[in-house]
Amino acid sequence: MTLVDGARSRTSDHGVSGIERAKRRIGAYAALAKPRVIELLLVTTIPAMFLAGREFPDPWLVLATLVGGTMAAGSANALNCVADSDIDKVMNRTKRRPLVRDSVSPRGALVFGIALGVAAFSVLYLTVNLISAVLAVATILFYIFVYTLVLKRRTAQNVVWGGAAGCMPVVIGWSAVTGTVEWPALVMFGVIFFWTPPHTWALAMRYREDYERAGVPMLPVIATPEHVAKQIVIYSWVMVGWTLLLAPATSWLYASFALLAGGWFLFYAHRLYSGVRAGEKTKPMQLFHRSNTYLMIVFVALAVDSAIGLPVIGLPF
């Protein structure tokens, strides 16, 4: 922080009560955890727990898993803010994050992130099981050391392989109920894995200049809009097809919603591609927001299907 920044900070705090300063500090640390990102992760964790038992899971187990999972995700996000603080300073989308605004020190954010990770392991180990706790820590380490520090700044495939970290909540949710990792958990992992590129590339198309200025080689930065839109369509088709692999572990209800939601999302993915090819002004953020809705529909259908307990389709052998 420069002398001028420090003076501004002191001026902005002048006349502010101790309670208000405490609220601001708590809000800054909460922002490090990126709560809006965590919300999406939790939307997938609970349905995975429903599917694991094909019934309502124990509410206390759900609560413990969500608390531990929230801490783990918050840890990864806070540590990501520390590692990416130089990038965040030059991107309009991220320039209001706590480290950029000096509302939290790098050391404070680092300690906060590590403390959340330790707390996540402790909560999951003591209240859920060891495998869920280990998976949560492995996710944090993968997100920071593989995605943030290695892949993000070096390859356009960063969100493809780095996105695996965002797929882990469903595996953790499954293991919390069963104590194991079985094929339905891996299929749910795959759904989110193939969902991540269309979701993230649509956002990156909108903020292409931000990523280019920060030196992050997102696909929209190094490839033509037509190529990016084509890749979005390809991954969308694979994603929709992958959701149907869960049919043997569910009933006709889930399969129907997966098909309908998939067709809905594919329509907009193809419309984006057609617009780009025709040279029209497109709105990739619409697809970005619809991708969130799509994922929610698929996983809510999974939870409802499991809660109702309809007969499963089953494997053909």
Rank of each mutant, 00 (worst) to 15 (best):
residue 196 T to N: 13
residue 70 T to E: 01
residue 19 I to Q: 14
residue 100 V to Y: 06
residue 297 I to V: 15
residue 295 L to N: 03
residue 284 P to K: 11
residue 155 T to M: 07
residue 50 F to N: 06
residue 185 A to M: 11
residue 279 G to T: 07
residue 298 V to K: 00
residue 232 I to G: 04
residue 219 L to Q: 07
residue 255 A to M: 15
residue 27 G to W: 01
residue 59 P to G: 08
residue 147 Y to E: 12
residue 127 T to V: 01
residue 221 V to G: 11
residue 172 I to P: 10
residue 22 A to Q: 09
residue 28 A to Q: 01
residue 176 A to H: 00
residue 139 T to G: 13
residue 311 P to F: 06
residue 123 V to D: 04
residue 15 G to Y: 03
residue 236 S to P: 04
residue 120 A to V: 07
residue 64 A to P: 02
residue 13 D to H: 12
residue 236 S to E: 06
residue 297 I to F: 03
residue 73 A to M: 06
residue 100 V to M: 04
residue 158 N to I: 09
residue 84 D to P: 07
residue 233 V to H: 02
residue 146 V to H: 05
residue 241 G to E: 11
residue 205 M to S: 13
residue 201 W to Q: 12
residue 269 A to L: 09
residue 258 A to P: 10
residue 15 G to N: 04
residue 129 N to F: 11
residue 63 L to Y: 05
residue 161 W to Y: 15
residue 76 A to P: 01
residue 97 R to E: 08
residue 311 P to R: 06
residue 300 V to G: 02
residue 42 L to Y: 00
residue 135 L to C: 08
residue 50 F to C: 14
residue 278 A to T: 05
residue 208 R to W: 10
residue 87 I to S: 06
residue 224 T to K: 13
residue 108 G to K: 03
residue 258 A to S: 13
residue 3 L to I: 02
residue 116 L to Q: 12
residue 103 S to H: 07
residue 215 G to L: 09
residue 18 G to E: 15
